[in-house]
Design a protein around this nucleic acid. Structure first.
Length: 707
RNA sequence: GGGCGGUUAGCUCAGUUGGCUAGAGCGUAUCGUUGACGUCGAUAAGGUCACAGGUUCGAGCCCUGUACCGCCCACCA
């Protein structure tokens, strides 16, 4: 017997060599598969951000996708799992800014090109680390097709989409109110803001004959009207009138308008309208053709239109204005007030709504098609209840701001007129004169929201429109990703997919939950509870980690990952190892096993076949948490605890037919068990497979799944 | 303000179309140096399946309501 099996199983001794064996075989590339009798099966990997260490969430998605891919490969499908990494625009820029801050530097006094070059270097390092991490986790993906979100062909696809959408009127440049982060100096999409409950004051201020209630008295200098509900009897007499309003810096004139958006019962029922600094007011302003007066600058400070308050930060200015109003007798009442405010999802600072020209995507039509696809089950979302969430979001979607004032990203291929603000798409970068006014055109310095490009990932990576890959592998089969990016990413992929290819991008969306720590807390650096999967893999083996991530983890549900659980599956790996040893030790040469089975062995074998069918059924229905547990239970508590124990007297006994029959089925079960287990514990099973004397196929990786 | 999920053994969680005498892992207790494995084995304790109604021959699972926990969405200043 091979001496290898006499020692306990040592994962770290074997894993990298096994991975190398697979990778060198070329079987990760579907075209090289020896007997792919079935059609294509495709998963496009959600590209990890190339800006940090690989974490437990990556380990989970790699495990799930690798399970699907390995299973389908063994089923004879032409399996493509296309890997990639993401430049992750704003996310990476924020990470890099933090690094700059630590070094006492700032992006705002750096040359644009220098900053860009530095981030490229930074990303390259992490890109490499991410790729290594994926290999360590056993990802059987096709590295020959690896993509990066800034590859020239990807950018070209993104540009073509931008142009086409612009020509179709689905993209427009508009001067509209957007979410502005005063720290990061960029606008953000609605998804990139969070809302936070805050306790503020509600101030009742005398506005001429009326009283308005506001939490932001410092914006009063940007007021252009006072709005009331059209059915509010109290104010009917004032409609259309111009009020003379006293402020600490002089008098201003405000028209009284009527708008349905004003609630009669809130505050005094009279609302001051500041279109330049409030999204709601902006829309009211649009409806009534009101002008806009900006009084707060991009740093969140009051500007020269506010007289003596110029240069003050918003909070300072608020206090100062309140103090002055009080002294002037214009502040009538102050109430405690609890409300939600939008904050930047990265730094938590309050979003300052600002009016700046940005590129927007019109969402209505795109969204409706995506909703129909899901409602009609052309796209299936697992877990099912996410379909409702998906559709609800799309049903209430607003136009999407895709411009970002950051360096790290795909530049928007557009020109802007210095004189008249005319905007034009210019992918070839050739236009210099404004067709409207003859003014000089300058390049738009903004970059795309990273999701504008990653939303096109499924067809962009496959070389849409003309490549063979696109024709062969699109629409793809499964999109597996974390449920928290269903809107950011999944919804956008569906919309873009329809728009550009006329087809769904994938048939099934499999959403997984978050990996939390043993105490069910979110992993975070500050809590020091982050599990580094590569460290865990070193300690317990990748297979043990994979099992721990899969067994009992239902789709869409967050899971608690305890080190003890991982340790348990290390023991399981050793158990399989020793089952193998026991069977091999007691197996004579193969030719002696050409005998009929005893009735009891027939029964044992039938039970195993039933398990196989059961597991296969689970695999087909994405119930990996059940499939893995069933294999575990069978291997340990049926095969090892019962069958092997009962086999000892038979094997060491004198009844030759019983003995050979038993040995025969043990060998059959062992081989098939390794196959069932392979998608879950690929390293262990392949390591064993490579040393089995009775094995004919060169690699378990491409062996047929048992029927 | 809307929506979604959860509540099952001490802990973490499974439980597929209602058939369950409700399971697993870890933990706990007792026993076992058997010629695969002590990274082991055997045995055991531990549950009104959140609560209250209902449907059904039968409910952890379906329906109605309640409570608590978590999450998401939302332009009443």
């Amino acid at each position: 017997m091979d001496s290898k099996f006499t020692k306990p199983y040592n994962p770290t001794e074997n894993e990298s060599a096994i991975y190398e064996l697979w990778e060198k075989s070329g079987y990760f590339t579907p075209e090289n598969l020896p007997n792919a009798t079935e059609g294509p099966f495709t998963i496009i990997m959600p590209p990890p951000n190339a800006n940090g260490q690989i974490h437990a969430g990556h380990a989970l998605f790699v495990t799930l996708e690798d399970i699907m891919i390995r299973y389908k490969r063994m089923k004879g499908f032409k399996t493509l799992w296309l890997p990639g990494t993401d430049h992750a625009g704003f996310e990476t820029q924020v990470v890099y800014e933090k690094k700059l801050e630590k070094e006492g530097r700032s992006r705002f006094n750096m040359d644009r090109d220098k900053l860009h070059a530095e981030i490229i270097d930074f990303v390259q390092t992490y890109k490499k680390a991410t790729e290594d991490g994926l290999r360590k986790l056993g990802a059987s993906c096709d590295w020959t097709r690896e993509k990066f979100t800034l590859d020239p062909d990807i950018i070209q696809t993104v540009y073509d989409t931008f142009k086409q959408m612009f020509d179709d009127g689905l993209i427009y440049r508009g001067k509209r109110i957007v979410n502005w982060c005063t720290k990061h100096q960029t606008s953000l999409s609605d998804l990139e803001t969070l809302s936070e409950n805050r306790k503020d004051k509600l101030y009742y201020i005398q506005y001429g004959p009326l009283v308005v209630a506001t939490v932001r008295p410092e914006t009063m200098f940007g007021d252009v009207a006072v709005a009331v509900n059209p059915n509010d009897e109290r104010y009917k007499q004032y409609l259309g009138q111009e009020l003379e309003v006293q402020t600490p810096i002089g008098k201003m004139k405000l028209k009284v308008i009527a708008d349905e958006a004003v609630e009669k019962d809130f505050g005094t029922g009279a609302l001051k309208i500041t279109p330049a600094h409030d999204a709601n007011d902006f829309e009211i302003g649009q409806r009534h053709n009101l002008p806009t007066i900006e009084v707060i600058d991009c740093y969140g400070k009051l500007n020269e239109k506010t007289g003596k308050y110029v240069g003050m930060k918003i909070n300072e200015a608020r206090e100062a204005v309140v103090k002055d109003l009080t002294e002037m007798g214009l502040l009538l009442k102050t109430e405690d007030y609890e409300h939600n405010v939008a904050i930047c999802y990265k730094c938590g600072r309050i979003i300052e709504p600002r009016i700046i020209p940005q590129w927007f995507v019109k969402m209505d039509q795109l969204a409706q098609k995506a909703i129909v696809a899901v409602r009609e089950k052309k796209i299936r979302i697992i877990p099912n209840h996410q379909e409702k969430i998906f559709c609800h979001w799309l049903d209430n979607i607003r136009d999407w701001n895709i411009s970002r004032q950051i360096v790290w990203g795909i530049p928007i291929p557009a020109k802007l007129c210095e004189k008249c603000d005319y905007a034009i798409v210019d992918i070839e970068n050739k236009k210099t004169i404004c067709p409207e006014c003859g003014g000089k055109l300058i390049k738009d310095s903004d970059t795309f929201d990273t999701w504008f490009s990653s939303g096109q990932w499924p067809y962009a990576t496959l070389g849409y429109p003309d490549s063979n890959d696109f024709k062969t592998y699109y629409p793809t089969d499964v999109m597996n990703t974390a449920s928290d990016i269903i809107f950011f990413w999944v919804a956008r992929m569906v919309m873009f997919g329809f728009y550009r290819t006329g087809q769904i991008p994938f048939h099934t969306v499999y959403l997984h939950g978050l990996v939390r720590d043993a105490k069910n807390q979110k992993m975070s650096k500050s809590k020091n509870n982050v599990i580094d999967p590569t460290v865990i893999a070193e300690k317990y083996g990748t297979d043990a980690l994979r099992m721990a991530l899969v067994v009992g983890n239902t789709p869409g549900t967050d899971m608690a990952l305890a080190e003890d659980k991982i340790k348990g599956y290390k023991h399981f790996a050793n158990k399989i190892w020793n089952i193998t040893r026991f069977i091999l030790e007691n197996s004579p040469k193969q030719e002696e096993l050409n005998i009929d089975l005893t009735p009891i062995d027939e029964k044992i074998l039938a039970e195993f076949r039933a398990l196989t069918a059961n597991v296969t059924n689970d695999m087909e229905n994405f119930r990996f948490h059940l499939a893995s547990e069933k294999i575990y239970q069978y291997a340990w508590h049926t095969l090892a605890d019962v069958i092997l124990e009962e086999s000892k007297p038979i094997i060491f006994g004198k009844e030759e037919t019983d003995r050979l029959s038993r040995i025969k089925i043990l060998n059959v079960i062992l081989l098939d068990l390794l196959k069932l287990l392979h998608p879950f514990m690929p390293f262990l099973t392949e390591t064993i497979w490579q040393d089995l004397p009775q094995v004919k196929e060169e690699m378990l990786l491409v062996t047929r799944w048992p029927e």
